[in-house]
């Protein structure tokens, strides 16, 4: 018996929701980035599952490949920015940056 597509989609949904909750509740900048990675992976699970089960076909796999690469690029920049923030503020707490208000 083949695993139904919905199971995979549920895994993707769990990843996505965990990522969203992680982004919403964590204050540590790097923890928020981890949430982003989870969200992107949720989408990737969807894409690969669709590639296997739907007429989307290989397109889904190729999209997920590009997503992996783009996520790496984004993580690199986000980390550089986070480190820069840390150098200026001696903390990585996103809420601790309070110069910009209004």
């Amino acid at each position: 018996m083949e695993t139904p597509l919905a199971y995979y989609l549920f895994v993707g949904a769990v990843l996505f929701v965990s990522g969203i909750v992680c982004m919403a509740t964590k204050r540590n900048g790097i923890a928020v980035l981890m949430g982003v990675e989870l969200v992107l992976n949720g989408a990737n699970v969807n894409f690969v599952a669709f590639a296997h089960y739907t007429p989307l076909g290989l397109d889904g796999q190729i999209v997920s490949l590009f997503v992996i690469v783009l996520a790496a690029a984004e993580a690199a920049v986000a980390l550089a920015i986070a480190l820069n923030f840390y150098n200026n503020h001696q903390t990585i707490d996103v809420d601790r940056g309070d110069k910009l208000r209004g």
Binding site: G19, G29, G35, V36, V39, L40, A78, I81, N84, L100
Partner: peptide
């Protein structure tokens, strides 16, 4: 400080929205 803070907020929210 302001610049790095702006960038961090932008990247965090932006990456989330992109996801």
């Amino acid at each position: 400080r302001a610049s790095s803070e702006a960038a961090l907020k932008y990247v965090v929210y932006g990456a989330g929205a992109a996801g």
